[in-house]
Simulated scan of single mutants.
Amino acid sequence: MPETSAKILVIEDETQLAKFVQMELSYEGYDVAVANDGLSGLMAARDNVPDLILLDWMMPGLAGVEVCRRLRSTGAQMPIIFLTAKDDVADRVAGLDAGADDYVVKPFSIEELLARVRAHLRRNDPQEAEALQFETLTLNRKTREVFRGDRGIELTAKEFDLLDYLIAHPRQVLTRDQILEKVWGYDFMGDSNIIEVYIRYLRLKLESEGEKRLIQTVRGVGYVLRE
């Protein structure tokens, strides 16, 4: 079973279908919560923000399309996939206009649903994104450009890889072993102080015009990118 920390909220009033989807998603390693009506689903999405929502269109009380509109009106950015029996173009357009990212028509195959979930989570995964930003720091993986505000910063290949790993995990303390494994590889046998050397290089370049420090040292553990 693959491991994932992604949180998925299923808002579906058909109890048996909701349980089935929850079971399949849980088996794939997702952290799954279920709400059986629109209002409780809306509250659950606001109280414990999920990484993705599977949303039934037709529910008594607060319909799925209205749940979607309300979430988007408050700035919610997570992918929302409608589960719907509605398959005509007008309904699809209405769902997309309300802020949905995708839809799966009932009855659906669980394999298709899982594929859609994986695809949308990948697009929202900072480790897969083309451009990453933290505070005034911007990194573009496609062009391998780095900016601190409007100032371009020239980095070596390894400096870029190290910064990429840090900015993809903002506010997370990364141990020296994690950094060595991800940036230099399992079989690295070089200078044991290589991380400290490259952290110093990065700080000199990122702070050359007096900008505040973003790469912080956590003594005895590793490093973290934070304000």
Rank of each mutant, 00 (worst) to 15 (best):
I8Q: 01
I11P: 07
D13R: 03
K19C: 06
K19G: 01
K19V: 03
V21I: 15
Q22F: 04
L25Q: 00
L25V: 02
Y27I: 07
E28T: 11
G29H: 05
V34F: 04
G38K: 10
L42A: 07
L42H: 05
A44H: 06
R46M: 14
R46C: 11
D47E: 14
D51V: 12
L55T: 00
M58H: 02
M59P: 05
P60Y: 09
G61I: 07
L62F: 11
A63S: 15
G64C: 04
G64H: 06
V65D: 00
R69H: 07
R72D: 01
T74K: 12
G75W: 10
G75Q: 05
G75V: 10
P79E: 09
P79V: 04
I80F: 04
T84P: 06
D88K: 05
D88T: 13
V89L: 14
D91F: 04
A94P: 08
G95I: 09
A98M: 10
D101A: 08
V104D: 02
F108C: 03
E111S: 14
E112L: 15
L113H: 06
L113W: 05
V117T: 07
L121G: 01
R123W: 03
P126I: 06
E130N: 13
E130L: 10
E130M: 13
A131K: 13
T136S: 13
T136A: 11
T136L: 13
L137K: 02
T138Y: 07
L139A: 05
L139W: 03
R151E: 08
R151G: 09
I153P: 10
E154D: 06
D161M: 08
I167S: 03
H169P: 00
P170D: 03
T175F: 08
R176A: 06
R176G: 06
Q178W: 11
W184P: 07
F188V: 00
D191I: 06
I199G: 03
L202M: 09
R203S: 08
K205Q: 09
E207G: 01
S208F: 02
G210P: 00
I215Y: 07
V218A: 12
V218P: 06
V221F: 13
G222H: 11
G222N: 02
V224N: 07
R226F: 01
